[in-house]
Design a protein around this nucleic acid. Sequence first.
DNA 1: AAATGACCGAATTGGTATTTTAGTCAGTTT
DNA 2: AAACTGACTAAAATACCAATTCGGTCATTT
Lengths: 191, 191
Amino acid sequence: MAVIDRKKLILEAAAKSFSLYGYKATTMDQVAKLANVGKGTIYTFFKTKEELFDEIISSLIADIRFEVESALDDSASILDNVNHVLARVHEFRKSHQLTIKLIQEERDMGTQTVVEAMQRVEQSIIQYMKGIIQKAIEKGEIKSCDPEITAFVMLKMYFSLVNEWQRNHPPLKKEEIAKLFELYLLKGLLA
Amino acid sequence: MAVIDRKKLILEAAAKSFSLYGYKATTMDQVAKLANVGKGTIYTFFKTKEELFDEIISSLIADIRFEVESALDDSASILDNVNHVLARVHEFRKSHQLTIKLIQEERDMGTQTVVEAMQRVEQSIIQYMKGIIQKAIEKGEIKSCDPEITAFVMLKMYFSLVNEWQRNHPPLKKEEIAKLFELYLLKGLLA
DNA sequence: AAATGACCGAATTGGTATTTTAGTCAGTTT
DNA sequence: AAACTGACTAAAATACCAATTCGGTCATTT
């Protein structure tokens, strides 16, 4: 196409700026300059800064899902699948510039918009895991249980182990976490 | 004793003020006035405001332990004991003025001293649960496992379920949480 | 010897002048 | 005329500084 796709330019510029400076420190002037468009043009595609940001978050969610989907194996056990999904999500969060910046901004400044965005991301991961768990129930691989609470508990447990446990202890290796998941959630503690 | 126990007066005044106004908003002048002592007197017993606060936190920890200890029954199952302990801790946090105020201050202002104090409280609960779990392992009631990680996971799981799940869902009843603990941690999900 | 409160420097607060920013829109370009 | 632009505005954020408050000390009192 001879015409430049201005919306795409804007989205790319915004993604870059949010990754580099976070939500608050990114200005619309800055995005306009980076995208080589007038500021008014942005507002023909997005009603507000927040709407632009939300669209970036939507594609972030899609990226995570794609990343995670390739880790999924229908013939593998639920334990392996859950571990793979959680490990990939964690890898993604640790290596992806935008998520790093947003986690930082959420922690350090508590920007409302960012807090909400991160909750949306978390919710979407939970919904995705819910599907995996539902399948495992149908296959009779695990007991019948509320798939959403189960997904929620798994995610919380995972993030506790990788993020909070390290505050007072040496970090756990990937295989150790897998073992803990197996023990606590699958086999159970009962002797 | 004819002499007034000034240290006790100061501790009581401080506890009252921290409960009412939190850590930051409590001033040493205020504590002195409440305790009916000169400000200098406080500094003959406590080096700094933080040290005074730490002593209040130590007795808070003792109070929690006492509250929890009475919920413990050596002849009961590990599940019942863990559920009782966690429920009592939660009740305590919800009803005790000082903890309410400090949780609020931690959330709203992130006061460093308060964050550290709350971590100390959490650590002491974990250490306490660790003992319970260790006993259950020795009795052969549950499998051999790292008692500290187990205590940590249990506490995190509990607080996730009572504090975070409610953000997007109707709150879980005490018995529902007990059932979830039983399913996830004791019996395990495996069919 | 024990207790006190006036006092000190550091930190916080409140008020305000200045700058920055999200969003608009009259005008320009294509 | 449809798409695009950037100077403009009102509101919000920031920088600034004076005034106050606070944790901690110590010379004096009890």
